[in-house]
Design a protein around this nucleic acid. Structure first.
Lengths: 268, 268
DNA sequence: ATTTCAATGTCGCCT
DNA sequence: AGGCGACGTTGAAAT
């Protein structure tokens, strides 16, 4: 059970000790109050006074959240070293990151709530499904989903200084480079595929090398770029594919992360 | 001044009302407790029981933070619709996003702290410096930073299906395409520049077209790729450039966002 | 609404 | 530590 140290509407002076102690002892620190923020490092920013929620995690990550929006207005990643001290202008929380050198400063002028938490336990494994590697692996096992007669040579093949998702040969013996996307493909994906095709052509003079972009959709301009580069596009239905992947994994009983289990309609 | 409604170590039943009320009335809600998380939408994930910090913002953004790390383990962007209700298994916080259709569910089994906050005021403007457009604009005004004798024709020129940062002529009348990066340049940047150069060559048969990549650093493989494509690289010192930009803006008194002011050694 | 590109992107994997 | 590509990328600007 977590242990909480809580202060409501404390003065800056009253809370200074708790805040400094919390960051020094790597507790989770939550502060709600009025503050200004200043950041400098890879970029730089300033934010005038306002009511914000500031979180300092045990690993040194710092988040400054405004009342709206998904993303923090300012932040510091884990392993930044943090200090807190009272100054003439307010209570200054200062986070310094080594490499790259970055400094985040939060100056509090009013505190509504200060909370320090100890003894948090969170060891559960985070399980993600439906990422690109799952599609890629399934398509490598079932290349007929892309085209009849494909024979996979290998997947994640180093080509030049990148990796082609799948390299295969078609029924006529031509090389086929396959690039898989789980979201709408843009020009980036087309150029990536083009690069791999060109490299394979250089490595195999005389051989015909095809390039197939596999994605649920393709942007209009990306489509014309793809055409002009002589590449091909195969649309796939991600949802349909996932049902197949789930079924395939269900047959592999030893699978640790059973996707079928996830799709069960259990109430949590 | 914000108004706080706070409960410490409440039972699920005790807190259900406050939580449901807070999300319904678009208060800022902060919950610390033990929970499981389930997400499905573009992707899918599951997370078993653990102690976490859950934040629901007035605009419907939801964040689930584990004790470590900068990024939330699960989240929902603003404008998701949120409900909370007690079930047989625990207190279920449910957030639904419309397009794309995504559902985030947090099932609490123990509550350490529940806090609802009203009346937050945060109207300050967030001011950012040092983004790429500032460098590009400055270099377009001061091309001598790249090379003596450059004459800028235009910036952000549409080329093919992208935009060249700067197009200029050198003192010998050759076209020069300039690609600016504020971080280490990779292969992408090299290929992007190469495509613009190629396009300009096609548009101007017979003309010599140079390509210069301007960045604080370049990746090793990107460098050899650049060389093999006959392109050029100019290193720039971002920090030094920013001091110049600041000085230039200082002379423009009407500038709203004075970067010089930011660099002043004021204590916040 | 779609597409494109930058981002203090972050994160994980691999060399 | 550097390079590379995916990400539930997010976010903003332009079309």
């Amino acid at each position: 059970m977590p242990q909480l140290s809580l202060m409501l509407n404390p003065s800056l002076r009253e809370a200074a000790g708790l805040i400094a102690d919390a960051v020094a002892k790597h507790r989770l620190l939550i502060v709600l109050g009025r503050c200004s923020v200043r950041y400098t490092g890879r970029g730089a920013s300033r934010l005038g006074p306002g009511d914000r929620l500031v979180i300092v995690k045990p690993d040194g990550a710092v988040l400054v959240h405004r009342p709206r929006g998904y993303s923090p207005v300012n932040w510091q990643p884990e392993s930044s070293s943090i200090t807190a001290e009272e100054t003439g202008e307010g209570l200054l929380l200062r986070s310094v990151r080594g490499r790259p050198r970055e400094i985040l400063e939060v100056l509090f002028t009013r505190l509504d709530l200060v909370l320090a938490v100890d003894g948090l336990e969170d060891t559960a494994e985070f399980i993600e499904y439906l990422d690109e590697s799952e599609i890629r692996d399934y398509l490598a096992e079932h290349p007929e989903e892309i085209e009849e007669g494909l024979h996979v040579i290998r997947k994640e093949r180093p080509i030049g200084d990148g990796y082609a998702d799948i390299v295969a040969r078609d029924k006529e013996g031509n090389y086929v480079v396959i690039e898989v996307k789980r979201v709408t493909a843009g020009k980036d994906a087309v150029l990536q595929l083009h690069r791999y095709v060109e490299t394979l052509r250089r490595e195999n003079p005389g051989a015909r090398v095809r390039g197939i972009l596999v994605a649920p959709a393709i942007a209009k301009d990306a489509r014309s770029l793809l055409n002009s580069l002589g590449l091909e596009y195969r649309q796939i239905d991600i949802q349909r594919l996932y049902r197949k992947i789930a079924a395939a994994q269900a047959r592999t009983v030893t699978q640790t992360r059973s996707i079928l289990d996830f799709f069960k309609k259990t109430k949590h």
